[in-house]
Each structure stands twice: as C-alpha cells, then as structure tokens.
Amino acid sequence: MEGKFEPLVLAFCCNYCPSCSADLAGSAKMQYPSNIRIIKVPCIGTVGTIHILKALENGADGVCLMGCLEGKCEYSSGNYRARKRVQYVKNLLGKLSIEKERLEIYNISAAEARKFCEIAREVTETVRSLGPIPLKIDNSKI
C-alpha cells in the first residue's frame, strides 16, 4: 500500500478556553488540518498518563494537550498539573525510544482562534516529519 502519510493527532481540549477557541475557529470558518481529532475534557488537568499512553498505543501519531492560559485555569492549577504530567510522559517516551516531540502541551485563550489553527498546523507538520508512530498496530489486519 503506497500513499502519502497523513498523521493522526489526538488533541485533548479543556472545556473552557481551548474548546471555545476551536468553536470560534469553526464559526469564523477558519481552516485547520483534519488530522487533528479533538476530545473535550472538563479541564486539561484531568488528562492522565494513561490517556496519553493509550492514545499513542491505539494509533495516534501524536498527542497534544490544550489548556487555558497559565494563571487562567478555571480550576486554578489544572494546566500546571498537566504541564508537569506531560513532562513526565515525555521522559517515559524517551525511555521507550519514541520521539518526545510527539507529545506537546499548549496554552491558549478563548479568543485565539487563529492561534488554535496555527497550533493544529504546527503539530500536524511536526508529527508528519516524524513519520508514523513505531508502536502502530496495523488495524486493518485485526
């Protein structure tokens, strides 16, 4: 099967600012790559190590977390916790010889629909340059 590699990136979006900016991007008819698939979570601090690792295991080429701006978390510190957790998982990935760049966390405000689109493009391109994730199980064969 020969074709162009289209990466698949799972984005965990906090229900507050980042989801709002994604909605705004939608209502302003802005475009961002369809490689990004969004899962809304109550707060970015609720995304656990298990969620990130399972996503990669299940075939995501990259995972990104989007939280509110620092200091603006609706639940005061969820986005700081998420940042620490991302660092922890990055170290785990390093031990598994998986590129750390496949995982990233961003802070974004509700107004920044443009930034949301830029991040989506940036993440897609980063992951595209890294190629498919080596963990991939070929689902078509299951």
Partner: peptide
Amino acid sequence: AILVDASLMSDRVC
C-alpha cells in the same frame, strides 16, 4: 474509537 476509525478510513502508509 476515534483513532481506530480514522486509521481504517485513511489511506495511510502503515
């Protein structure tokens, strides 16, 4: 579900 669906549909190099 999102990931499995997406990888089944796409014409990706695996």
